[in-house]
Design a protein around this nucleic acid. Structure first.
Lengths: 222, 222
DNA sequence: CGTCCTTTTGAAGAGAGTCAAACCCCGTGG
DNA sequence: CCACGGGGTTTGACTCTCTTCAAAAGGACG
């Protein structure tokens, strides 16, 4: 089963015709190479897209070269559109990736409509979380919180095995995501390894002590 | 004309019946006192709301007392809901305020539907901007950028005269919005006054040199 | 095996935080 | 009318997290 369908099914039950519509859309998927721009800032998008496989990221560039990565997009994520409104940030493929047009939701209360709505609500929740992370967490806490979030999102499409996940993300990109420098990311990762919070093998990160993560981040009141 | 209607009209043309529906909703508005909670984090919201008058803010609290203000809500802003999904952050009235249920949009391409969609897109754009602000701007730049954004949003409902606007916001709240401390906000405001960027009289702020603001913030690539 | 990207390390510096106290404004009540 | 109180603002001195700059080391790949 495609990761994207798995992710949507965790949000609402999809009936057979909806799964068929998804499969049909998937059969008309588009492929992107790493570093390829999926959507330019300021461009219009004629239809919502659904991430199928691979990673992308949404980013803002400042004229002096500073970059802020707004969020990463993983399988199951939606790229919403509003007719006549231009994209507020560009989206760039991080890995080889596939996406397709998100099939129409049908009637208001349909499973697909509910799944889309839930996914959009989740998306907003993650944006709020990113704001809190940047505004009020220390570097150490930002990394832990971010790892937890990424794990949660990958788990939704079963794209990670247990507590281990493979992140196609350089330390410089983590820095641009978390509002830090690559140097400081590097040092903070060392601290996390030293403290037995994570274990890294190449690009694979294992969250060793999920309880400790919750404790660190978990002063976040639900 | 109600500020909220003015704001929506800047986003899409509304026909007479839509204005009437808005007026009717406004006649059934609800009033909130300062500091009153409009929506608790984790609570469900049965219908979307429309801000009519006054200010509110959306906020996250951490268990150790740290606070992040996600965004301010001003007249014309929508508070979206998704059935069965709980609110990701609480909303609190900052001033005496009025809001009402957002009237149903009618058919897909109606003026009201387009206005709502455009407002939601704007909202997302401001969230992205807040992320970039927190992640990549200095304290000085954050304040300038934030003042520009607030001005733009108030102007939409004609809630500010020219370049002057009255912000019912303490320096401590600015700090919790911009990821800084109240002490540092205070010192940075002094720098802005010294540099002739802003002028303050009580809670009223005047943006003196809109060009300079654009230049400071304007390395933001459109 | 050389090249390019990424990670790692060191030393020094700056921006923002912390703590504590004074000051100011403004509404309240004696 | 003025002392009182309380939130908000301002100031000073000191600290610390994170940045900057530069260079070395590691790894993947043609």
């Amino acid at each position: 089963m495609a990761p994207a369908i798995l992710a949507l099914q965790t949000l609402a039950d999809l009936d057979l015709s909806e799964c068929a519509a998804l499969q049909s859309a998937i059969s008309r998927r588009r492929n992107f190479a790493p570093r390829q721009e999926i959507l330019a800032e300021g461009a219009a998008l004629s239809q919502p897209l659904l991430m199928l496989e691979g990673w992308a990221y949404r980013t803002h560039l400042l004229a002096d070269g500073r970059r802020q990565i707004i969020q990463f997009l993983v399988p199951g994520d939606l790229i919403a559109n509003v007719d006549g409104v231009s994209a507020p940030a560009s989206i760039i493929a991080l890995t080889e990736l596939n996406l397709c047009a998100a099939p129409a939701a049908g009637s208001e209360g349909s499973g697909l409509a509910r799944a889309y709505a839930a996914m959009r609500a989740l998306d907003e929740r993650y944006l709020f979380r990113q704001i809190t992370r940047l505004g009020r967490l220390s570097a150490y806490e930002r990394l832990v919180d971010w790892f937890c979030e990424v794990h949660e999102r990958l788990a939704r499409s079963q794209s990670c095995g247990g507590n281990a996940m493979t992140l196609p993300v350089t330390q410089e990109m983590m820095a641009d995501t978390l509002g830090l420098t690559n140097v400081h990311i590097n040092r903070t990762l060392q601290a996390l390894r030293r403290d037995g919070i994570i274990e890294t093998v190449g690009k694979t990160v294992r969250l060793l002590d999920h309880g400790a993560c919750q404790a660190i981040v978990g002063h976040r009141v639900r």
